[in-house]
């Protein structure tokens, strides 16, 4: 047997062996490269323990899954409790170290919801969206008293804190809120603290003028913005609630329900809130 010229079949075999097979293998392997996902988190309620915990779960998922390259928060919220707002805000800050977070304000991003907006990389809103209401609201604790049948080991065991301390702590939270807005918006913020802290709620148009948001836009523009910031293309969007397997969100009783069944805009429990309470005829 001596060497002979390769037959056409032999050439084909060589081509298949050295080109087609690697190509097919490459194609198959490339399918392992995930299609980039823009995770979408919807917040269409007040921020309280239930809604905040859901958001945190989704934010952690986004941070831990490389295919999620950016997150868009679609928000229509009046804010909520101080603690839950800060929990979400700080979790967002961790995520932003590696992935951009864009906020799309649909109806409203007031108070605590704007706290989250300030903690986003980019904020879009509709012209008529309501934005702002920066500040804290809360009910003063009762005046100190003792009761015949209730004993405690300290004067503020039942009340939590003196009324004056409550007010001064509220001011500390206000400072934190202002700082969050200033750090988050940076040079984009066009108004000073005296305007920021007035607690006004502005339309999207005015908020844009004041530098509280970055653009007027839609959800699809928010996705595109997030993709651009994450340097991805041909992305897909996914509801992170579905990806994380969270159950369908059930609203828990954050708001006080009047005896006649009417839902009020007031929280069910006392405390401190980054919350917009719209004006109503009746007080609780």
């Amino acid at each position: 047997m001596s060497d002979s010229a390769p037959t056409p079949f032999g050439r084909f075999r060589a081509l298949a062996g050295w080109i087609l097979l690697p190509l097919i293998a490459g194609i198959l392997l490339s399918l392992l490269i995930p299609k980039p996902i823009i995770g979408v988190i919807y917040l269409k309620d007040a921020i309280y323990d239930g809604s905040a915990q859901d958001m945190i779960t989704q934010l952690i998922y986004a941070r831990e899954h490389p295919e999620v390259r950016a997150v868009v928060l679609v928000v229509n919220s009046p804010g909520g409790t101080v603690t839950d707002t800060e929990s979400v805000y700080l979790e967002m800050a961790r995520l932003r170290q590696t992935k951009p977070v864009v906020m799309m304000v649909e109806g409203m991003a007031a108070s605590g919801a704007y706290y989250l907006a300030a903690g986003s990389d980019y904020v879009l809103a509709k012209p008529s969206s309501l934005v702002g209401n920066i500040g804290i609201i809360g009910y003063l604790p009762e005046s100190p008293s003792v009761q015949e049948e209730v004993y405690s080991t300290g004067p503020y065991k039942t009340l939590g804190y003196p009324r004056d301390t409550f007010i001064r702590d509220m001011d500390t939270l206000k400072q934190g809120f202002l700082k969050a807005v200033q750090l988050g918006r940076g040079d984009r913020l066009k108004i000073g603290p005296e305007v920021v802290l007035r607690g006004e709620i502005w339309t999207g148009t005015t908020a844009l003028k004041y530098g509280l948001i970055d653009a007027i836009g839609t959800q699809s523009q928010a996705f595109d913005q997030a993709a651009a910031m994450a340097h991805i293309a041909h992305y897909t969007t996914a509801d992170l609630r579905t990806l994380t397997g969270l159950p369908i969100f059930v609203t828990s009783p954050f708001y006080y329900q009047a005896p006649d069944g009417r839902m009020t805009p007031y929280p069910n429990q006392s405390g401190l809130f980054y919350l917009y309470v719209p004006p109503t005829e009746e007080q609780p």
């Binding site: 050295w18 080109i19 690697p22 490459g26 299609k35 390259r69 950016a70 170290q97 991805i232």
Partner: peptide, 25 residues
Amino acid sequence: LAAAVLLVPLAARTLWFYQGIYTPA
């Protein structure tokens, strides 16, 4: 050649989706 051919789809898909690395501004 085989290695190059193997990498082409991988590179193509990567570049199709990922056009840079995100770093916070």
